[in-house]
Each structure stands twice: as C-alpha cells, then as structure tokens.
C-alpha cells in the first residue's frame, strides 16, 4: 500500500470551544480522502473527517470524539488515547498493573488498521491509581502543540 504525503496549510479552526478541529487547504483534488491521517513534526495531529474539493476538515487528537489505538513504548501496554477538549488527552484502559511513569511515550498501534504503527502521539505527564479502579487515570500531553503549527502533512493511501 503506497502512502503519499500531501503538504497543507491550516486555514481555519473550529468555532466551538468544545470541539477541536482544523481546516486545511488540501482536498479531494489533491487526493485527500476521509480517514487519511494528518501528521506534523513526525507526530500524529489527527485524521481527516470531511473532504471537499480544495479543503478538508481534520479532527484533532484532542477532540472529545477522537479515539486512537496506542501503545506505551516503555511497557508495550495497549491503550486508547482519548481527547477531552483541553490541551491534554487521557489514556483509556491503561491497566492498573502497568508501570507507567512521567515521560513515557505513547505511539500509535496498527490495531484497527486506520493508523500506521509507531507514530508518536503523546507523552505521559501524570498518572493516578484510585483504589478499587480497574484502570489507571493517565493524563498525556500531545507531542504536537496544535496552537503552534501552521502546516501539516496528510498521509494519503
């Protein structure tokens, strides 16, 4: 499967405070399709949700609807990275026995087939283990600071 990167500039941001998406100036005419993944600085930014002729909407990893299969590099635990409309994300289903610590890296997992494996997503900044809980509560910081980037690469299949 050949993957071709399409460079694009960010031309718009979401009008709502609770949704995190960007509009880029590459669309179907440049070969962009829904579910193509978007990267910047060698890290995951999000995935394309809506495509028109010369522009597309990208759902960011911090969007509350975003769920990305991930893996902790240091412990190899399988997790789900979930956006929550802030600058941070949460790890879902991080087992309570996982030895997570601040600075651990989270990368994409190819489970589901949407994302390529081993693409950096985020870094662990805080984890808490509540008594009786099945899973840890883990806060992660995305590798890409969305507010600082101006252009992205869309990886088209």
């Amino acid at each position: 499967m050949k993957k071709t990167p399409v460079p694009a500039d960010i031309v718009g941001y979401d009008a709502s405070n609770f949704r995190k998406s960007i509009t880029i100036n590459a669309g179907s005419k440049q070969g962009v399709k829904p579910n193509d993944i978007v990267v910047s600085d060698n890290a995951l930014v999000g995935k394309v949700t809506t495509v028109s002729g010369r522009s597309s909407v990208v759902q960011l990893i911090t969007d509350p609807a975003a769920r990305i299969p991930g893996r902790v590099v240091q412990t190899r635990e399988q997790v789900i990275v979930e956006g929550n409309a802030t600058a941070f994300c949460k790890l879902k289903y991080a087992p309570r026995w996982a030895q997570l610590k601040k600075g651990d890296d989270i990368v994409t997992s190819d489970i589901g087939g949407l994302y390529p494996p081993s693409l950096p997503i985020a870094t662990v900044v805080e984890n808490e283990l509540k008594s009786g809980a099945l899973f840890q509560s883990v806060k992660v910081l995305p590798r890409v600071n969305i507010s600082k980037i101006e252009s992205v690469l869309v990886i088209t299949n």
Partner: peptide, 24 residues
C-alpha cells in the same frame, strides 16, 4: 449555554473531565 453544550458532549462521548471542563 456552555454547561448545556458540555452536558450534550459528555452524554455523546463520555470523555470530558469535570474539573477541567468547568474551568474552561
């Protein structure tokens, strides 16, 4: 309006953190 919108999102996606959402 923001509280109602956040409730709608919380029901839809179950992914909002209460303290951070209220602060936001």
């Amino acid at each position: 309006y923001n509280v109602v919108y956040a409730i709608h999102l919380a029901i839809s996606f179950h992914s909002l953190c209460l303290s951070e959402t209220i602060w936001m």
